[in-house]
């Protein structure tokens, strides 16, 4: 279990209900983010040190803002919070709507592949590992 999750939302989760119910509780039943699409490798960074007096946020929202003091991908956030990616997308939508996080979607080019300089940088970077 990840720390900081043993509150609010978990209390009304039925232990026997199976793996889908906790995510359902975390998002209040919402399946889609209010804004954004969020690729697995979209990078997320918090715009503030904490959420301040924002109301209507749950412990998972706060956990994301805390985690994203350092840049994280959507996949990393999901892994660290031990929540399905779909659930994390909904939470991120809430945070974007409040301007609490900034998101960078992966760069897509018309050809679907990044330019040569990116390839060369990755190749050189790998060789230097």
């Amino acid at each position: 279990m990840t720390g900081g999750r043993e509150s609010a939302a978990d209390e009304w989760v039925d232990d026997h209900a199976g793996p889908v119910v906790r995510p359902y509780a975390v998002t209040g039943g919402r399946a889609r983010p209010v804004t954004g699409t969020f690729d697995l490798i979209s990078l997320v960074t918090a715009t503030r040190a904490d959420t301040g007096a924002e109301s209507g946020l749950g412990p998972e929202h706060l956990a994301i803002v805390a985690l994203c003091q350092r840049i994280q991908s959507v996949a990393e956030i999901a892994a660290h919070l031990d929540l399905p990616v779909g659930t994390v997308r909904v939470l991120l939508g809430d945070l974007v709507a409040r301007s609490l996080v900034e998101v960078r979607e992966p760069r897509a080019t018309s050809a679907g592949l990044p330019d040569e300089s990116v390839f060369e940088a990755v190749i050189n970077g790998l060789r230097a590992l």
Binding site: T35, G36, T37, L40, I41, S42, L43, T45, T47, I71, S73, V96, S99, L100, V101, E102, V103, R104, E105, P106, R107, P114, V118, V122
Partner: peptide
């Protein structure tokens, strides 16, 4: 598309490019 860009403090380094394999 990027979201929430306006919130980013002026002068902050741009977010990195992420590549997926």
């Amino acid at each position: 598309m990027d979201y929430g860009r306006s919130e980013r403090p002026a002068g902050a380094a741009p977010l990195p490019t992420a590549i997926k394999i």
